[in-house]
Amino acid sequence: MPIKGPRDHRAQKALTYTLFLALPVTFFLTAYVYAVGYTGFVSLHSWDGISPTMRFVGLDNYGSLMGQSRFWHAVANNLKWLAFYLVAPSTLGLALALLVDGKLKGEGVIKTLIFLPYIITPVAVAAVWRWLYLPDGGLVNTVLDGIGLSGVASNWLGDRHIASYSVMAAALWSTTGFSFLVFFSGLRSIPAELFEAARIDGASAFTIFRRITIPHLWPSTVLVLGLFGIEAMRLFDLVWSMTGGGPSRASEVLATQLYDVAFATFQMGKASAIGIVQLCLAAVLILPYIAYITRNVEEAAE
């Protein structure tokens, strides 16, 4: 049996790498690059999605979007969701992680209870919360009535002024478990000696939190905020299942509007334009943020 030289060996390694990479690269090119490119192409056309031919309309779909209050309302809602995701479930997750971390009995059970909602599919979350929110006989209003707060009881999903916030409350319940778990693991990975040394040096609890806990939780924070930011921009299922974007489009976000425009009103070109704008908006809002905090994490790690 001939002995193979290093050159053969390199070639074989290259072949191995190529084979392992072929599938993900093919998948990325067809399911992402091609799909985005094709969506961009469709966005320049008028097409009902069914006809064999499309009519080129240039940037008309984009122009028409820019002039529609419906579109801007959805953009504003996405921005509200972004603010919500970056603040509420992340802060609550952090607070719960700090509260639970080594301080409570039955920690395992509490951790499971907090994390449990996160593994429930959004459609099921929506079904449960729709039921909780029923104006008459729903648990939320019943409890409010019971404790003498009937003035606060509302038509949670049917009032156009509060429907989005009501969905956000359901999202808070559903997603806090994720940030909790990430922060909790982050807390557990901080070396105990640091806290010990700080205490010996006479640092107050607040100083320890500010100078040790927070900086060491930075990688967890990057992960949580980054993923929540992306979630806010691509949000679809919870809104669609709870309100369908209503009442009267009040809780509509870009993804639900895209779906409605594409498949309920047959305007694939305009829907594709919404998709492209959504992608650009997500990129503009989230990429610099991720780049910025990632750089800071690297600096902190050095």
Binding site: P135, D136, N155, G158, G246, P247
Partner: peptide
């Protein structure tokens, strides 16, 4: 009816 915007057709069917 009150708060009808918060009900599906079957919710109202139940009422």
């Amino acid at each position: 009816m009150d708060d009808w915007t918060g009900y599906t057709w079957s919710d109202t069917g139940a009422k």
